[in-house]
Simulated scan of single mutants.
Amino acid sequence: MRTLLITGPGGSGRTTVAAATAHAAARAGVRTLLLGTDRTDTLGAVLGAPVGLEPSEAAPRLTVRRLDADEDFRTDLAALQDRASSALDLLGASRLDPEELTPLPGAGELALLRALRDAALPGTHDLLVVDLPPVPRALDLLALPEELRRYLRRLLPPERQAARALRPVLGRLAGVPLPAEWLYETAARLDLQLAAAETVLADRGTAVRLVAEPGPAGADAVRTATLGLALRGLRTDVLVATRVLPEGAGDSWLAGPVAQQRKALAEWRETHDVRPVAHLGRDPRGADDLAALAVPGADAGPSAAEGPSAVEWPVTDSLADDGVLVWHIPLPGARREELDLIRRGDELVVTAGPFRRTVPLPSALRRCTVDGAALREGELRIRFRPDPRLWPRTG
């Protein structure tokens, strides 16, 4: 199944583009699921009909629904209380009633990851279109599966479960209680769920589609979003430029905005596959307006057969010439003064602008020391020199 994750700066028309994309796919005969993530019904305002928490048919072959983060949060917390009942009783803790619970920050993101995982299962749809939150929240969400899995591995290393039978004995010898069995089981179950969501994001059929209005603010947002996606190893398929004014309007008071848009579009075309969407002169509402937008189809941009959605970070061998290995990390839009690198054991912490990612080093680079780095043409090149103490001797 193909998955389109649509995001952009707030107010750019990303919800409208998501709805129009799903409508176009359904009209072309593709069984489509359109998923809204806003707590308020912004999708319903665009579609011209309310979108509820239960799936409903908005048009032939088009199913729509909104996430219910509240219910997911109540279900998860109730299940956690049941599994930890003995510990709660020992502490004299009072159980929380599901009816008194309100979602904590982050509950919506977890609900969306679960929806992505469930929608990817074989079923009745061929295309999933997700109206993601605005760019900053969307990038945090896309980073969540990898980061949570890394935290779980650090806090509860899977290899420690091998001593499962010895935990009661070790606990008595050490004089302190060791993590209970249910904690490891919960961590393992959560890790599997996060891994499933991570697989969907890295799948060849998954693409992130950016939506922005051409202009200074839109240009800044696109640069930031492209950098954040690249650091996460994701790439966009197309950049949808919304509310593009007609060139003929340049003779009126719109001459300034038209020139501004023309400049932004020219700059975007140097680095993105740009698909302009004309301004209708009104806020789109209903199927006819969505069709009139003529948004790019779900199959726009590189096809799934052309390679994975993840951006490759290759290591090149320059040992014979320079005595180093070079790790190439594409970071389009990065600025030298906003970059920072920290090595921690077998991991590298990369900071680019407002984004940070901790990545494991490829196996060959773990036996090397960092010899320097340079940013050239939107690519960070990190040099690694073999450590004589760890590198196997030859000859």
Rank of each mutant, 00 (worst) to 15 (best):
P276C: 03
H272D: 09
D251C: 05
A264L: 00
D251E: 11
Q260L: 14
P284R: 02
V277S: 11
A264Q: 00
D289W: 15
H279C: 09
A255Y: 08
V258P: 00
P246G: 05
E247L: 06
D289Y: 11
A259N: 02
A249N: 15
R282Q: 00
E267Q: 13
L280A: 12
D273K: 08
L280N: 14
K263P: 12
D288R: 15
G256K: 03
D273P: 08
D288L: 07
A255I: 00
D289K: 11
A287R: 11
E247F: 01
D251H: 11
P284D: 08
V258A: 01
A249Y: 09
K263Y: 08
A249I: 13
R275G: 01
R285Y: 04
D251R: 05
R262M: 14
R269P: 11
L265Y: 09
A264G: 04
A278T: 12
W253R: 14
D289E: 03
A255N: 05
Q261R: 02
G250W: 04
W253F: 09
V274P: 01
E270R: 10
E267C: 08
R285Q: 05
L265I: 12
L280T: 14
R275A: 08
E247A: 02
D288G: 00
T271W: 02
W253G: 11
R262S: 04
E247I: 14
E270T: 03
P257Q: 13
D283R: 13
L280D: 06
R282K: 07
H272R: 06
S252G: 15
V258Y: 09
A259M: 02
D251G: 12
H272Y: 06
G281C: 00
D289V: 01
P284H: 10
D283M: 13
V258E: 14
D283V: 04
D251T: 11
Q261N: 10
W253N: 14
A249D: 05
K263I: 02
R269H: 12
P257C: 12
V274E: 10
R275Y: 13
R282I: 03
G250M: 09
W268H: 14
L254D: 07
V277F: 04
Q261D: 04
K263F: 07
W268C: 08
P276K: 04
D288N: 06
L265D: 08
V277N: 02
E270V: 15
A255M: 02
E270G: 04
E247H: 10
W253H: 03
Q261M: 04
D288Y: 05
R269A: 15
A259R: 05
V277R: 07
P257R: 06
